[in-house]
C-alpha cells in the first residue's frame, strides 16, 4: 500500500498526539514486522519511560504497541507488531504500512516502568513480549544499572535477538534464550533463586505465560512489590458508552459520544461549566443530576455522594442509564 494511511477522522485516543511518518519497515520474523516512525519535519520526539506503549490509529480503531527504544531523547519511535489473523484488524493494518505512510499516534504512555530502586532487573519475555523488555534492557545499559534477560521464542523465530545480543556487556550481563518449554522451566527456576537481593522481575508475554512466571516467583518468596507485568492501559479510563443528557432548564437534549466527555459535549453546545483540572479531582465541574444513574469515575465525590446519584463530575463521569437529566 502506497496511499497515505492518514485517517480522515482522528480517534479520541490519539487526539492531541503526534502525526508521524513511517521511515522504515523491517521483517523480524515470518509474522513480526518492526515499524519505525519519525516526525515528518525531523527533529526530536518526546522522551518516554522504558517499557512505554504507543497508541497507534489504524482505520477507525486504535491499538497499543510497546516501544522498543530506551526512550532517552529519541528522534524516532520503533514498534514491533505480531500479525494476528483473528484480531480486530489492527495488526494486519500495521503490517500493510509502507515507508512514507503517515499515522496518528498518542504521546507514549507508561504502564510498565523500571523500578528506580532495583539493584538488578530480571527481564523475562516470551515471543512478541520481547518488545518492552528490550526497552528495559537498553535503559539498563544507558543508566549504568544491570539486567539479566530470559527470552523464550520458537526456534529461528526470535524477534530482536541480534539487538539483544549486541547489548550484552556491563549493563545486560546475561541473555538466556530458550526455544522449548522444558529448558525455560529450568532456566527460570534457577534464575529465581540466584538473583541479588533487591532484584525486580519484569515479565511480558501471553497472559498464561505471565501468570505462570509470577506464580512461580511468588512461590519462591518474591514479594509482589518486586514483580511487574505488562498490562496495557490499566491506568487509563476507557472511552465509555455513548449516552444522552437532557438539560431540564433549557429543554435541550445532547448526545455524548464514546470517547468524548460530558464536559466537552456541554462546552461544544455553548454551556459554560466552571472547571479546573478536567481529571476528576478538583471538584469544580460538579453538576446536579435530577434523573438517571451516573457512572462515577472521579476521585472527588465521597462514596456516599456517589451513591446518592444527585451530583456528578462532568469531566470524567458518564452514565449507567441511556439518559441523564441535569439541572442545567
Amino acid at each position: 500500500m502506497t496511499a497515505i494511511a492518514l485517517q480522515p477522522r482522528v480517534h479520541p485516543a490519539v487526539e492531541g498526539g503526534l502525526q508521524l511518518e513511517v521511515t522504515n519497515v523491517s521483517r523480524e520474523t515470518e509474522s513480526i514486522v518492526s515499524i519505525t516512525m519519525a516526525a515528518p519535519e525531523g527533529g526530536r520526539l518526546p522522551s518516554y519511560v522504558p517499557g512505554s506503549h504507543l497508541v497507534v490509529q489504524w482505520g477507525n480503531g486504535v491499538n497499543a504497541y510497546s516501544l522498543t527504544g530506551s526512550g532517552n531523547a529519541p528522534s524516532e519511535y520503533s514498534i514491533s507488531v505480531l500479525r494476528v489473523g483473528e484480531g480486530a484488524g489492527g495488526s494486519l493494518a500495521m503490517h500493510r504500512l509502507c515507508v512514507g505512510d503517515r499515522v496518528y499516534v498518542a504521546r507514549p504512555r507508561s504502564a510498565f516502568a523500571p523500578a528506580s530502586t532495583a539493584t538488578h532487573h530480571l527481564l523475562v519475555a516470551a515471543g512478541i513480549g520481547i518488545t518492552p523488555v528490550l526497552s528495559h534492557a537498553r535503559a539498563a545499559v544507558e543508566r549504568d544499572s544491570t539486567a539479566t534477560m530470559i527470552y523464550v521464542h520458537r526456534p529461528d523465530a526470535g524477534a530482536h535477538v541480534a539487538e539483544a545480543r549486541e547489548l550484552l556487556g556491563p549493563g545486560l550481563i546475561a541473555l538466556v534464550e530458550c526455544t522449548d518449554r522444558g529448558s525455560f522451566q529450568n532456566v527460570l527456576a534457577e534464575a529465581l533463586i540466584t538473583q541479588p537481593v533487591g532484584t525486580h522481575l519484569y515479565v511480558c508475554g501471553p497472559v498464561v505465560f505471565m501468570d505462570a512466571v509470577l506464580e512461580e516467583a511468588r512461590g519462591h518468596g518474591w514479594s509482589s512489590a518486586r514483580l511487574h507485568s505488562e498490562a496495557f492501559g490499566a491506568a487509563e479510563l476507557d472511552a465509555g458508552e455513548p449516552f444522552t443528557v437532557h438539560l431540564a432548564r433549557s429543554g435541550v437534549r445532547l448526545e455524548v459520544p464514546a470517547g468524548v466527555s460530558l464536559l466537552e459535549t456541554l462546552e461544544t453546545a455553548g454551556q459554560s461549566i466552571p472547571n479546573m483540572c478536567r481529571k476528576g479531582i478538583c471538584g469544580e465541574c460538579v453538576l446536579p443530576v435530577l434523573r438517571g444513574a451516573p457512572q462515577h469515575r472521579d476521585l472527588y465525590l465521597s462514596e456516599q455522594e456517589k451513591a446518592a446519584n444527585n451530583t456528578m463530575m462532568s469531566c470524567v463521569s458518564r452514565s449507567n442509564d441511556p439518559e441523564l437529566e441535569l439541572d442545567l
Binding site: P46, S47, Y48, V49, S52, R107, P108, R109, S110, A235, C277, K279, I281, L299, Y300, S302
Partner: peptide
C-alpha cells in the same frame, strides 16, 4: 477531607509529559 489521598491518586495517574 480526603484531600491528601485524592491528590495522591491524581498524581499517580499523571502520564509522563503532563504538567499541572
Amino acid at each position: 477531607e480526603r484531600i491528601t489521598s485524592r491528590a495522591e491518586q491524581f498524581l499517580l495517574r499523571l502520564q509522563p509529559g503532563e504538567q499541572f
